[in-house]
């Protein structure tokens, strides 16, 4: 069990957990700023981004596609802001306009270009393939101490860990201005906090998290993790720090439990094959939210 677990299950669980964490943390602030759906928009425009990245370089290598996706996310966020401001359109509709258009363009580009022989398709973009991120060189727990084997860990794991660190550093360092400008943007401005810039930075960090997580686990987990764990935590507490901490816990629980249920659940039920881990993680996060919405101590707001 040990060897197989370390080689086949540990890396996906770790990657899933890190991805969940990287999205849930900024998700708290997006939720409080009523920008929860930015995660949704970003994850949709990742597809055109990677397609353009692929078309420009002609190879399915990771970095150009990641860069393309990140660029697409920023273009989308910029376009949403622009359309909202200059067209005087409400934020939800502005988002809908941008992400559907870019997604449609991405699908069209994908169909038009000859990608049938490479591993690039819409399904992969949507569900990712968490289960395939295995660590072949691992022979057991001792491999974690073996530099030779460690060198062959899935690159997604290292990338995701790095992004997770960036996200945590961003939120840790800018905690106070983030909290102030999220609570009272006008006041933040009078303090000299560049609130607009900070908002843009938050969205950029979210985009980085979304792109990295998408690469590892597909866009469903991304949307679910941006929203569900913070929303669940929101129903449990009235303190920001506690909310953020709880959201991290819920994200990790969703990732681990979701992966285990997807991988082993069908086997326990007597079926041979596993089901989608990404989908199951999203489902578990939804169940947690449902539980909090039913019995969470702070489920009612001041207005509701």
């Amino acid at each position: 069990m040990g060897a197989e677990f370390v080689a086949l299950s540990l890396p996906p669980i770790l990657i899933g957990s890190l991805a969940a964490l990287a999205c849930a943390l900024p998700g708290n602030f997006l939720l409080l700023r009523r920008q929860a759906l930015i995660g949704d928009a970003i994850s949709h425009v990742v597809l055109p981004g990677i397609v353009v990245g692929f078309l420009l370089t002609g190879t399915v290598s990771t970095w150009p596609m990641l860069l393309g996706a990140a660029a697409a996310a920023l273009v989308a966020v910029g376009a949403i802001q622009l359309i909202q401001r200059i067209g005087r359109i409400e934020p939800g509709a502005a988002m809908g306009v941008v992400f559907t258009t870019l997604f449609a363009a991405g699908v069209l580009l994908l169909e038009q270009s000859d990608t049938s022989n490479v591993h690039l398709d819409v399904q992969h973009a949507l569900y990712g393939n968490l289960e395939s991120l295995i660590w072949i060189d691992a022979t057991g727990w001792q491999s974690l101490l073996d530099p030779e084997a460690l060198a062959w860990m899935p690159p997604e794991l290292i990338r995701m860990a790095l992004v997770c660190l960036i996200v945590m550093a961003f939120i840790g360092l800018l905690w106070r201005p983030l909290a102030i400008s999220t609570f009272d943007e006008g006041f933040a401005r009078t303090l000299g906090i560049p609130a607009t810039l900070l908002g843009l930075a938050l969205v950029t960090v979210s985009a980085i998290a979304a792109v990295a997580a998408f690469d590892a686990v597909g866009s469903i987990i991304v949307i679910a993790m941006f929203i569900c764990p913070p929303a669940t935590a929101r129903l449990m507490t009235d303190r920001l720090a506690v909310q953020v901490a709880l959201s991290a816990v819920f994200a990790l629980v969703s990732a681990v439990v979701g992966y285990v249920l997807a991988g082993y659940g069908p086997i326990w039920l007597g079926y041979a094959d596993a089901v989608s881990a990404a989908g199951m993680i999203a489902t578990v996060s939804g169940l947690l939210l449902a539980a909090a919405a039913l019995v969470g101590p702070r489920r009612r707001g001041q207005s509701a």
Binding site: L32, A179, T182, F183, D184, G186, R234, T237, D238, R239, L240, V242, Q243, G301, Q302, S303
Partner: peptide, 10 residues
Amino acid sequence: ASVDWDFPTR
């Protein structure tokens, strides 16, 4: 009334 009174803050 220029802030979200439901904000998690004491």
